[in-house]
Structure formats: C-alpha cells, structure tokens
Amino acid sequence: MKPYTMTVSPDFMPDYIAGWYIFNTWLQRQLGQSIHLELYNDFATQREAISRDEIDLIYANPFDAAMLVREKGFSAIAAPQDKPDEVILAVPAESPVKKLDDLTPGTRIARTDDPDVNLIGMMMIESADLKADNTHVQMLDSYVLVAKALFQERADLGFFLKEAYESLSDFVRSQLSVLLSSEIHVVTHVLLASPAFTTHQDELRACLLDMPHRDKGQGVLDSMGLSGWQLQAQEDTEFMIDLMDTLA
C-alpha cells in the first residue's frame, strides 16, 4: 500500500527539522502505518501539493487551516500545548519609533512568507493607518534575515513570530526593540488529517494526547520543541478559522 504523506508548515524552526523526522518514525511505530514525511521549502509549494490531494497529515499554519478544513475536508486532531502563534513587531534599537502611532506612511517592513504572522502583523499596524498601499514590504527567507534587515537599517519595522524572535541570539535582540507583542491566545498551528486518513483519526488523536506517557514519547516531543499536544476539537478549529477570516 502507498504510504500516507505527512507535511509540516514551512515556518517550523530549523532547529527542529530532525525532530519532525524522529516524530514520523515514532508515529509510524505507534500506528502501525507507513507514513512518508515530505517537507516543503515554502508555503506556495506546499499549497500546490495540498491542491493535488497529496497530503494526508499536516501540521498546518493557522492561515492554511481555513482552506484545509473548509475546502479539503480535513479534520482537527490536536494542537501543540500552550503554543499560540503570537506576533512581535520590532524596530531597530536606535529607531525614533517608540510606539505604534509613531509609524508613518512609507514604513519599510521586513517579514518572511509566514502567512499568519503577516496577516496579524498587517492587522496590528492598521491602527497607525498603515496598510499594504502605503508601506514597502521586503519578503525575506528567515527571521534571522528580518532581524538583520532591521539592524542594518534596510527596514524600519519587522514582523516576527514571537517564538522565532525569542530564539534570536541575545546579541541580535540587543540591537532590536519590541514595539508591540500580540496577545491573541487562540491562533495556533493545528495537526489536521485528510479524509483519506479518517479510519486512523481516533487512534492518532489518542496517541498524541497520551504521547508524554508512551515509550520514548517525551524525548520525541523535546526534539520537536513541544511540551505536548492538546485536544483540538473541530469547533475550536472552526472558531479559529472564523477569527482569522475577520482579520483578513
């Protein structure tokens, strides 16, 4: 039988790539199913694979969850424990901009292609009357490059996933200053299963929720930078999708 395919939102932290492979090996053993892990370099390529129905399991960015659940019929399985996606807006340490309202039209924004961070970031600066048509956006390949663009003063404002910002080195962070940090709490990555995976869904959910207590489970979680999984009911995901829809 053809193995199932699992993929991970391309915004995962590079430190945890190995962890996802270890997780895949662990999961195959737990479920007794063969699963192939396919990682994509960017969101666009991943979405193409999704549209070709090549994906059975996905650790999805909240932004993509809408399409996966509402158009592709994916089901919510679990969310990482205590790990909401929050956004940090940062400026160079020496910047005259001390609060959001100091930002002016023409602001140069550095960001990655992380879709939920960009959606929330643009929403946050809207209260300073900044939008796509009066700002200049530079899309960079990583948050480290976003930080670099700021302290080299090639950009005035950076959008960061909070987790990524906090993992920057102390030296890099000392050159930056946090303007605002979001506290949305309910936007999170989610593990979703395709309709083709339905028969294993309950077993998968039970296995993830019980992961710290299963053989080697805790070590695997550590290698992925997760403290555990929490139940994500379909309605929790539907609610999150409605919320994202209001921000678009």
Binding site: D101, M123, M124, E126, S127, A128, D129, E235, E238, F239, D242, L243, D245, T246, L247
Partner: peptide
Amino acid sequence: LATVVANIRGGEVTGYTSVRRKPSRE
C-alpha cells in the same frame, strides 16, 4: 473596529462572531 462573520457549520448559520481590533484615530 469590529468585524462580524456568520459561523457556518454544516451549511447552517449557527451564530455570529465579532472580532474587534484597535481602530485608527483618524
């Protein structure tokens, strides 16, 4: 600045969600 959407579940409207963000002074 409020945005309100219908909660559509199984093709039916089951309620509404309003999400408010900080509005621009202007």
